[in-house]
Amino acid sequence: MKSIVPRYTREIPQRARLEGAKCLKCGHIEFPPRLVCSKCRHREFETISLQKTGTLLTYTIIYTPAETFSMQSPFAVGIVELDDGVRLTTQIVDVPLDELKIGKRVEMIFRLVQKEGHAGILEYGYKAVLTN
């Protein structure tokens, strides 16, 4: 089995701390970071911490998940726009599903995302909770 450990370790700054890359020329924020700015093609960035609050743009309810997430079914996955404009796909947790609504405010939190089988590593990262 191919181990997920190297990739998981490499992505910790993004998954655990929501670190993005801000283009030093045009100010566009890339998340996850890229080598070349998708707006102006510049190659120099500064590392920034993304805003931890945002707005729920859209969501769906997963009733038939991948096996790893079968115990959590049904659960919500949505697209969140953080207050600095970055959009990301994330699970939305700690909410009765009938309370979800587009436009609600969210906060990004740190949670267990999945387990690598019964003996592999535990993979942590960001999820969203409603704040209103």
């Binding site: 959590q72 949670r111 267990l112 535990l122 942590y124």
Partner: peptide, 13 residues
């Protein structure tokens, strides 16, 4: 704890 919560996530929060 939620299904995605453990000692580590509680400690972080």
């Amino acid at each position: 704890p939620g299904m995605d919560e453990d000692t580590i996530t509680i400690a972080v929060a």
